[in-house]
Amino acid sequence: MNPGSAAAIFSVAGKTALVTGAAAGLGRAMAEALAENGARVVLFDREAGDLAATAADMTEAGLQVLAIPGDVTDRAQVEDAVAQAIARFGGLDICVANAGISDPDGARLHEMQEDHWRRTLEVNLTGLFHTNRAALSAMVPQGRGKIVNVASMWGHVAPAGLFPRPAYAASKGAVVNLTRELALEYATSGIQVNALCPGFFRTKGRPRSDADARRMAEYTPMKRLAEAAEIKGSLLYLASSASDFVTGASLIIDGGVTAG
């Protein structure tokens, strides 16, 4: 392969990646994108059944994966996943911190239960902290790495115009700015840290109803939802050498929502 070709620039062949929240949805699509393009992918998710099914499907397709059940809110489990990745594959080149949840009840702030607030931030922000810290601890000594933090278009604009999601909005806005902070902290360490900010994507079980799908499509300038596979190209850009001079950026994939 010509080292200066587009195929080489976007290649992740021979790289080792960790993807959290990899059992389903966009996490699965991103894990597939990396594995389909030659990476060895560690799949991490708390849903052990879905994780095993995803790993089986990918293995049957000839992809190289390692499934590790675990919860990003448990620091030791995340650190163990990174340790297993290094032990199995010799290092960690790419980390996709994707695991996340939304507000469970869609309540406005004054009506929101405190435990719902705490749980959303625990997964979306503290879980991402655990993931980034473990990955960076592996990447700094080797002097290279790519971290992709999955935020949301709601990290840049407020979702209340469509539905109230105060904890989700707060956590994803924090992910966007933490990504900027880490980009500067590790700019001279050979590590690029960027955020991927999806809009409305159609995945298994999402949207929850046809009515929700219609509302989301109407809210989107392109008047449709994205399919899960449409995130693959953006993820490969941030995970490959194509983005070697890009750090602290937010790549928004939202069909034009935040352009208005």
Score class of each variant (00 low, 15 high):
A99V: 00
N177I: 13
W117D: 09
R144L: 05
A170T: 14
R118L: 13
N177T: 15
W154F: 15
N98R: 09
E122G: 13
V176Y: 01
V140L: 11
P104S: 02
G173N: 06
S137E: 15
R119D: 11
K146E: 06
L128P: 08
M112F: 02
T131Q: 03
V96C: 11
A174K: 03
R144N: 13
R133C: 08
N98S: 09
D103N: 12
T131W: 02
R118F: 05
T131V: 02
A169T: 15
G100E: 07
S102N: 14
G106Y: 00
N132D: 14
F129Q: 14
G173A: 13
E114I: 12
A183P: 00
Q113P: 00
P104R: 10
L128I: 11
E111W: 07
L162Q: 12
E122C: 05
H156S: 12
E122I: 00
I101V: 15
K146V: 00
H156C: 08
E181Q: 14
N124R: 08
V176S: 04
G173E: 08
A134T: 09
Q142Y: 03
E122N: 13
A138Y: 02
A160C: 11
K146W: 01
T126M: 13
L182W: 12
V140P: 09
A97P: 06
V140N: 12
R165V: 11
V123I: 08
A167I: 00
E111D: 15
S102Y: 10
L178W: 11
G155I: 02
A183Q: 08
S137M: 15
W154P: 10
Q142D: 07
W117T: 06
N124L: 02
